[in-house]
Write a protein that binds this DNA or RNA. Structure first.
Length: 272
DNA sequence: CGGCAGGCGGTTA
DNA sequence: TAACCGCCTGCC
């Protein structure tokens, strides 16, 4: 086990980070500590008095990994200032989700997670991901009294059948996952949105999520039903007019679209 | 029971 | 290229 610490951290709130819809493998404990896994590292993360503390189940300490994963080197105060200048309507959403950070997640895990997420509820998405990892993923060790597993690599997933995956209860997303795994084995991982859209089961919304969370494409502004709702409520736009919403986001938020989307999404999810 | 959820692929016109 | 429709599953 090793420990990572960072002090003087502002604009950071574990609840906002882990509940704003960008990740599915972290869970809040009764003491407010989050227990989960990222990049093959099971960990406990806590935050108090501007100090981030990460205790992970890996022998060799790797502070760079956690700094990057938690996006600690980015000035979110400045991002919020810039967004506030561009659009006063965002103030309420940014005040509400003040501690959001966009995690820099593993690309393959992001692809798998957001293919599963389509037309699906968060508790079920989480269940599917955990069953998939426990059944077909590589075990990374024991941490706080349980075994932890990575999501299965493309090479593993690509040779499974829909029948193999039946117990995972992925529904029609199972064949998407297998096909996408095959494509990644053949062509390698996608490097941009256009390549993401070629993957089976990846449409505009899922591609935008993967681009934002897995590729660091911070201009990406994923529009789902919740973003449609919030744009309707705060801006009076038509909920299902994705073109109009995307055009507005592009024009107004520009290269900060992904940050704006996260504040808006979290705001409407928690205040509907 | 039908309706729906953090969409997508496939089929039509 | 826009509009439909069916889809696994689980929950209301």
């Amino acid at each position: 086990m090793s420990v990572f610490m960072a002090d003087l951290v502002t604009d950071f709130c574990l609840e906002h980070i882990f509940d704003c819809g960008q990740c599915f493998r972290w869970n809040r404990q009764e003491d407010g500590i989050y227990l989960g896994i990222a990049g093959g590292r099971p960990a406990r993360i806590s935050f108090s008095e501007n100090n981030v503390l990460v205790e992970d189940g890996i022998r060799e300490s790797n502070p760079d990994f956690w700094r990057k994963y938690l996006d600690l080197d980015r000035d979110y105060g400045r991002i919020k200032d810039h967004l506030a200048q561009r659009d006063a309507v965002l103030d309420k959403a940014m005040a509400f989700g003040y501690g959001i950070r966009i995690l820099q997640q593993d690309l393959w895990e992001t692809i798998v997670s957001f293919i599963i997420s389509q037309n699906n509820h968060i508790p079920r998405i989480k269940g599917c991901i955990e069953r998939l990892a426990a059944s077909f993923g590589e075990e990374v060790g024991t941490f706080y009294d349980r075994r932890w597993y990575n999501l299965p690599a493309p090479e593993i997933l690509s040779v499974l059948t829909e029948e193999d995956l039946a117990p995972i209860k992925l529904g029609y997303r199972a064949k998407y996952l297998i096909q996408t795994a095959k494509q990644v084995c053949q062509r390698g991982l996608p490097e941009n949105r256009e390549e993401l859209l070629r993957l089976c089961g990846v449409g505009p919304k899922v591609a935008n999520c993967i681009a934002l969370f897995g590729l660091g494409d911070y201009a990406s502004f994923p529009v789902d039903v919740w973003v449609g709702r919030v744009m309707n409520r705060l801006y009076g736009m038509e909920e299902k007019n994705r073109q109009q919403i995307e055009a507005y986001a592009q024009k107004t938020y520009g290269e900060l679209g992904g940050f704006a989307q996260q504040y808006l999404f979290y705001y409407i999810r928690e205040n509907h």
